[in-house]
Design a protein around this nucleic acid. Sequence first.
DNA 1: GTCCCTGCAAATCCTTTGCACTCCT
DNA 2: AGGAGTGCAAAGGATTTGCAGGGAC
Lengths: 135, 135
Amino acid sequence: MLKRRNTRQRDQIREYLKDRTDHPTAEKLYNELKVKNPKISLGTVYRNLMLLADEGEIQALNVGDAKTHFDPNPEPHVHFFCRKCKCVLDVHLENYDEFNQLLSRKVTGEITRCTVNLEGLCETCLKENVINLKR
Amino acid sequence: MLKRRNTRQRDQIREYLKDRTDHPTAEKLYNELKVKNPKISLGTVYRNLMLLADEGEIQALNVGDAKTHFDPNPEPHVHFFCRKCKCVLDVHLENYDEFNQLLSRKVTGEITRCTVNLEGLCETCLKENVINLKR
DNA sequence: GTCCCTGCAAATCCTTTGCACTCCT
DNA sequence: AGGAGTGCAAAGGATTTGCAGGGAC
């Protein structure tokens, strides 16, 4: 069994991701971390984000663009991806568990994870589109 | 406006994907197509699959491995991805539309697409695991 | 004949990895 | 001291793209 150590880099990554709702990619986080710690490397950011995700402290998301996004909230919930501005939003569904159980009954096998992703235009981009149409 | 032409390659891709339930990747399809048509190129396969998906004739899936899988059935439905054997299975949920409408009410914005992915062990792999445990 | 589509190979993008060195414990 | 973790750069895998020639209409 592997014995984990605390490192400054890992703590910084935790700290920078904590309380965020913008679901940054590894690269975005890396660029931000570089400001405080110019020596930090992209490989380290990837390694730690994956490690934290594997241990269930955070979650890794595939929303539909090619990149992996990271969410400090490890609880399963729905995500919305905007086709235009590429933002990723949380959607909290009170009956998520119910839905999962409904699904489970349809599958012979073992479900470890259920991912629901919505795609479209976020409120902001939708408004902009309407404004552009009016012009 | 672009005027599409019918090509032998596009027709072969349609033909090879039709009626399949194994959700092949571009590369898998390419290897199969090469048998009949050794000159076909991977780029062409990618271009045509993406084109067919953009036009809504088929659908492109992100199931959780890094690759894009293709489904000849363009109708939205649930997919199950097996962690062990990497197979992708269809799950047909009769109340899928209901679920979608439930979700829509939670989102301010416009939903173009709703994707539900399950991940775990398929029936076959689950059985194998049990057998291995018994030994 | 036009110009969309192909084959080919190189390029690109995101992510992972090997290695020597660092620094927690 | 031991070995997990880091920085760096190179490798890797999937997908896209530029371009010259080919074929559908």
